[in-house]
């Protein structure tokens, strides 16, 4: 669990605080995406959590412990950190990069070697092929995976990710997000993610915190955020198509199934409502068949896209 309480940061000489009175809790085993326009204080906030930036005021508790009282070096070794642009050590091979924190913690060789293999497999890289490559011999996506593996190496309960997928192309980014999402759920990590990408925030965050000029504007689950933006700023930041984005949060399995059969290729129940709508538009139909029988109708989608207050659709 990460608890930020009344956290603030004043840079000397700056007219306005970078972060002001930020209170935010990330419950155990969940992820929270910090998002906002550049300069909103999201990266500063993240860097205060592992004490790369010293807060001007407020408190930070990680797993119940006062992070500001802890020794910063010890604190950082207990927090997984995926930095912007990966930041692999160019002179160390993949295995040595991943072994960074275990080595600092003084693990023995056998334990480190076993752990390196395990986390490489976890992020989908074959240890036999990748362990002894240098970072410059990797593709952008492989580097990002190694960055995640390095952060997970010592199995920290808390993970900080700063624009973790910023350096790869959109297609690959989508796939990496998918995999990391699965991984984080499986490992039940408590995660704070900084991103400037709305799609990424609603995809990776169990909760999304929107910051503006160092202040928290709204903190809510993605479905709630997209349905009820707190103000014009949030609505504008989420985009005109926030109803469409919201459809991507639900699967066909969560929507009402109609009995009447519809012709055409059936969609899997695990497909998102966003994908289902795209199919309906592509096929020029008002309903699509679903694998296992029955169909999904266009008329049932508005409740998921933009529920009216009081008739809230079930959150994911």
């Amino acid at each position: 669990m990460i608890e930020l309480c009344d956290l603030s940061k004043h840079w000397p000489g700056a007219p306005a605080p970078a972060v002001a009175g930020l209170t935010l809790t990330v419950p155990e085993g969940t992820s929270c995406a910090l998002i906002g326009p550049s300069g909103c204080g999201k990266t500063t906030t993240l860097r205060m959590v592992n004490r790369l930036v010293a807060p001007s005021g407020g408190s930070i508790r990680i797993g119940g412990q006062d992070a500001l009282r802890a020794d910063p070096v010890t604190l950082r070794r207990g927090i997984g950190y995926v930095i912007q642009n990966v930041g692999l050590f160019p002179h160390r091979d993949v295995a040595a990069n991943i072994a960074t924190v275990p080595r600092l913690l003084g693990w023995d060789r056998a334990r480190i070697a076993a752990r390196v293999e395990a986390v490489l497999a976890l992020v989908g890289l074959d240890p036999a092929r990748f362990a002894h490559r240098l970072p410059r011999q990797l593709s952008g996506g492989e580097r990002q995976r190694v960055g995640v593996a390095r952060a997970l190496a010592a199995d920290p309960p808390v993970l900080l990710m700063d624009e973790p997928f910023g350096a790869v192309d959109p297609v690959l980014r989508g796939r990496l997000q998918e995999e990391v999402l699965r991984l984080l759920k499986q490992l039940r990590k408590t995660v704070l993610i900084v991103t400037h990408d709305v799609e990424e925030a609603i995809r990776l965050g169990d909760a999304v915190a929107i910051l503006r000029a160092g202040r928290l504007v709204q903190h809510a689950a993605p479905a709630e955020l997209l349905a009820h933006p707190a103000d014009g700023f949030v609505a504008g930041f989420l985009g005109q198509d926030r109803a469409l984005k919201r459809l991507a949060l639900f699967t066909i399995a969560e929507a009402p199934r109609r009995a009447e059969p519809v012709p055409g290729e059936p969609l899997a129940a695990t497909a998102t409502l966003h994908q289902a709508l795209a199919e309906m538009l592509a096929r020029g139909t008002r309903a699509v068949p679903v694998v296992g029988g029955g169909s999904l109708a266009l008329d049932d989608l508005p409740g998921f896209a933009a529920p009216s207050p009081g008739t809230e659709a079930r959150s994911p």
């Binding site: 790369l52 950082r76 950190y81 960074t100």
Partner: peptide, 25 residues
């Protein structure tokens, strides 16, 4: 590389470890 330095500190190296393991090499 400033990213490598950021990683070194962020992952919990002391100033001395950072110098010997990252900066000097």
């Amino acid at each position: 590389d400033s990213q490598a330095l950021e990683a070194a500190t962020g992952l919990g190296m002391t100033a001395r470890q950072r110098l010997l393991r990252v900066e000097l090499p």
